[in-house]
Design a protein around this nucleic acid. Structure first.
Length: 587
RNA sequence: CGGGGCGUAGCGCAGUUUGGUAGCGCACUUGGUUUGGGACCAAGGGGUCGGAGGUUCAAAUCCUCUCGCCCCGACCA
C-alpha cells in the first residue's frame, strides 16, 4: 500500500456547496471532493469516491459470485439490430443515446443489456445441461434522462451491476430469483444501508413479477406504500387499494331524487366545484378521458382521488396511455374539458374505480359547458363497462393484506429484480433442447443494482450537518491521522510512525500532513467522513498517548501510541464482524 | 416537452431597475506572526461578465437570437 498524504490527495473540498446541489448527498459529494460534474447528469469520480465505488462493487461482486453469478464485461456500444429484433428500438424512445458509425450503421449506448446478453448466449447454449446460467457485469450505463437530477441519484451516465439469469423452466427462474433476492439483501446490509423490499410494476421491461429494493429517505423520487403492521410494501404505482365494503354495489333501493342539472359557470376543477357547491370531493365522480393506444376511453374515480395511470394501463393491457386533448374530449363527450361525466357517454369504454359505485347522490359533469349533474347514482343512472382498482393509494388507506392503515414514504430505488419470462429469449430466438429433445425458449430474469446511486443513497442516509459518516465497509479509508501541528517534529514523527504501522497492519489510512490549523483539518475529516480519526497533539502526546475519535458517535478515547493500531484493528473488526456474520449466513 | 429561475474569478454572491469600461467574502501566491474545531497583518495573481448579432460616442447593464445549468411537472429497467 502506498502512502496517502492529504497534502497530495486529489480531494478538493469546498467550504460552501455549489448552488446547483439541492440534496445532502449531492452537496456533500461536491463539498468533500468526491465528484465533479462534467455536464448535466454526467460526473467524474475522484479518488475518494472511486475507492468507495470499488468497495461497493466488491461487495456486489462477492454476493453475485456466491449466488452463482459469473462476471463478464460487455461493451456500452450496442448495435441497433438487436434492439429492433426485441422491439425496443422504438419503445425506448428518446431515452436512448443513439449514434451512427462512419457507414451510417446505427448504435446506441446501452441503457440496459437484456438484448446483448441474450445475443451472447443464444448460439452457444443449446442444451438444458448448460442451464441455469447466471451472467453479470458491473459496467457503465447510459440513459438520456429527460430530467437528470439530484447528482448521482438520477444521472445520465451511471455504474450498474446487471445480472441476467437463464433457466429451463419457471421453477428454475423461481430459484434464480430467490437467490438474487437473498444476494441483494446481503449486499445492501453489508453496504450499511437500511432498505425495504417492495412489490413493483414491471414497466417496459415486461415480465411477471418484480421487486424493488428501496432506501427510505425524504429526498427519494419514488413513493412507496408500506404497512408497519404486517410488513407489506409496494411501490405506489403498484399498491393495491381495497374495495369499499358494507354497501352493496348492485343495490337497488335508491329512491332519492333523480339527477338534476346545475349551472356551474366556468367551474372545471374538483376544488372549484367543491367550494361552489359546498360539497366534498368524496361526493363527486371525476371523469377523465384518456387515449389508450389511440382509442378514447373514460376513467372514473371519486373526486378526491387520483387515477393511477399504471394500474389503468395494465388493466387495459395498453401499450400507451395519455390524457386526451381537448378536441378529442369535445368529440367524445360533446362538452368541453372540465365538464365530462358518465351519463350519456356512448361509444366509448367506461372504466370505474371500485369506489365509484358506492358514491351516493354524486356530482358529475353534464358533458355540456358550465353544467354539472347532481343526485347521480351508479346502477340507476349510469353503469360502467368495467369496475377495477385504478386509483392511487394514499396514506391511511387500508393495507391490502391486513387492513391496517398504510404509510406512504419517499424512497430511492437502489436495486430492482424482474422475472422476465420469455419476452427477450423468444424475440431473439434464445432456445435450448430439453430432456425430451424439444426446443424451448429460455426463461429469463434480470437483476440490477445502481452502484453509483447506492453510494449516493448511503450518504443520504449517513450524514450530519458536518459531513458524511461512512459505514466502515464502504469508507474510502478507515482512518485519518491528524497531527495538530505538522511543523512540530515530535508530532510529525509520532504521526508518521503510527501511519506506517497502520499500513503494515492492513489498516487503510491517510495522514493529514497539511500545514493547516487543526480546525481546518478536523472539519475536512468530518466532511469526508473517515470512520476513525486519530489526533496526534501535544495534550496527549506528552503522556505518550494519541486520541481515537469515532465519526459516528463522536466518542473519543486516549490510548498509548504503541497500542493505537491494535485498538483500531479491534474497532474495525467489531464493525466488520457484522459483515462476516452476514456473509456466512444463509447458503 | 410545458412552467419557473439562474449564468459576473475555483466556490458563494453584489453590480443589471436608472448604460460611463467590474467588485466583495472564501480559496490561491509571497513574506511575517500564529497553531487543539474553518487565524491575523501586509503585498499580489486571476474575469473576452455563457456565446453570437444589434442599438449607442459608450453595453455586465438595453434589444434579438442562441447555448448551458437548476427547480416543479409530465416520463422512466
Amino acid at each position: 500500500m502506498v502512502l496517502v498524504r492529504m497534502s497530495q490527495l486529489y480531494a478538493p473540498t469546498l467550504r460552501e456547496a455549489p448552488a446547483e446541489a439541492e440534496i445532502s448527498s449531492h452537496a456533500l459529494m461536491l463539498r468533500a471532493g468526491l465528484i465533479r460534474k462534467l455536464v448535466s447528469g454526467v460526473y467524474s469520480y475522484l479518488p475518494l469516491a472511486y475507492r468507495t465505488l470499488r468497495k461497493i462493487e466488491d461487495i456486489v461482486r462477492e454476493e453475485m459470485n456466491r449466488a452463482g453469478g459469473q462476471e463478464i464485461l460487455m461493451s456500452a456500444i450496442q448495435p441497433a439490430e438487436l434492439w429492433i429484433e426485441s422491439g425496443r428500438w422504438n419503445d425506448m424512445g428518446s431515452e436512448m443515446f443513439r449514434l451512427k458509425d462512419r457507414n451510417g450503421r446505427q448504435f446506441c449506448l446501452g441503457p440496459t443489456h437484456e438484448e446483448i446478453f441474450t445475443f451472447l448466449i443464444r448460439d452457444e447454449v443449446r442444451s438444458y445441461k448448460q442451464l441455469p446460467l447466471l451472467l453479470y457485469q458491473i459496467q457503465t450505463k447510459y440513459r438520456d434522462e429527460m430530467r437528470p437530477r439530484f447528482g448521482l441519484i438520477r444521472a445520465r451516465e451511471f455504474i450498474m451491476k446487471d445480472l441476467y439469469s437463464f433457466d429451463i423452466d419457471e421453477a428454475g427462474l423461481e430459484r434464480s430469483y430467490e437467490k438474487m433476492y437473498e444476494a441483494y439483501c446481503r449486499t445492501f446490509e453489508r453496504s450499511g444501508l437500511e432498505y425495504v423490499v417492495v412489490e413493483a410494476d414491471t414497466g417496459t421491461m415486461g415480465g411477471s413479477a418484480s421487486h424493488e429494493f428501496m432506501v427510505v429517505t425524504d429526498t427519494g423520487e419514488d413513493l412507496i406504500a408500506k404497512c408497519s403492521k404486517c410488513g407489506y410494501a409496494a411501490n405506489i404505482e403498484k399498491a393495491e387499494c381495497v374495495a369499499p365494503k358494507g354497501l352493496n354495489a348492485d343495490r337497488v333501493e335508491i329512491d332519492g331524487e333523480n339527477p338534476k342539472e346545475v349551472i356551474t359557470p366556468n367551474i372545471k376543477s374538483i376544488d372549484e366545484l367543491s367550494s361552489f357547491l359546498g360539497k366534498s370531493g368524496k361526493d363527486m365522480i371525476k371523469t377523465l378521458i384518456y387515449l389508450a393506444d389511440g382509442q378514447p376511453i373514460a376513467a372514473l374515480v371519486r373526486g378526491d382521488r387520483e387515477i393511477n395511470e399504471i394500474k389503468l394501463k395494465n388493466f387495459l393491457s395498453a401499450f400507451t396511455l395519455e390524457l386526451a386533448d381537448e378536441a378529442t374530449i369535445m368529440e367524445v363527450t360533446g362538452g368541453p374539458l372540465g365538464f365530462s361525466g358518465p351519463i350519456g357517454l356512448t361509444g366509448i369504454k367506461l372504466v370505474a374505480d371500485e369506489e365509484v359505485p358506492f358514491i351516493q347522490d354524486a356530482v358529475v359533469g353534464a358533458n355540456q359547458r358550465d353544467k354539472h349533474l347532481i343526485n347521480v347514482n351508479y346502477g340507476r343512472d349510469f353503469s360502467a363497462d368495467n369496475i377495477a382498482d385504478i386509483r392511487k393509494a394514499v396514506e391511511g388507506d387500508a393495507c391490502s393484506k391486513c387492513g391496517e392503515p398504510i404509510e406512504v414514504v419517499r424512497t430511492i430505488e437502489v436495486g430492482h429484480i424482474f422475472k422476465l419470462g420469455t419476452k427477450y429469449t423468444s424475440a431473439l430466438g434464445a432456445t435450448f433442447l430439453d430432456e425430451n429433445g424439444r426446443e424451448r425458449p429460455m426463461i429469463m430474469g434480470c437483476y440490477g443494482i445502481g452502484v453509483t446511486r447506492t453510494m449516493a443513497a448511503i450518504i443520504e442516509k449517513n450524514h450530519d450537518e458536518k459531513g458524511i459518516i461512512w459505514p466502515f465497509s464502504v469508507a474510502p479509508f478507515h482512518v485519518t491521522i491528524v497531527p495538530i501541528n505538522i511543523k512540530n517534529s515530535e508530532q510529525k514523527a509520532a504521526a508518521f510512525k503510527l501511519y506506517k504501522e497502520c499500513l503494515n497492519n492492513g489498516v487503510e489510512a491517510v495522514i493529514d500532513d497539511r500545514d493547516e490549523r487543526s480546525g481546518v483539518k478536523f472539519n475536512d475529516a468530518d466532511l469526508i467522513g473517515f470512520p476513525i480519526r486519530i489526533t496526534v497533539g501535544p495534550r496527549s502526546l506528552k503522556e505518550g498517548k494519541v486520541e481515537i475519535r469515532l465519526r459516528q458517535s463522536g466518542k473519543e478515547i486516549q490510548v498509548p501510541l504503541g497500542s493505537a493500531v491494535e485498538k483500531i484493528k479491534t474497532l474495525i473488526k467489531e464493525a466488520v464482524i457484522y459483515e462476516d456474520r452476514c456473509s456466512d449466513s444463509g447458503i
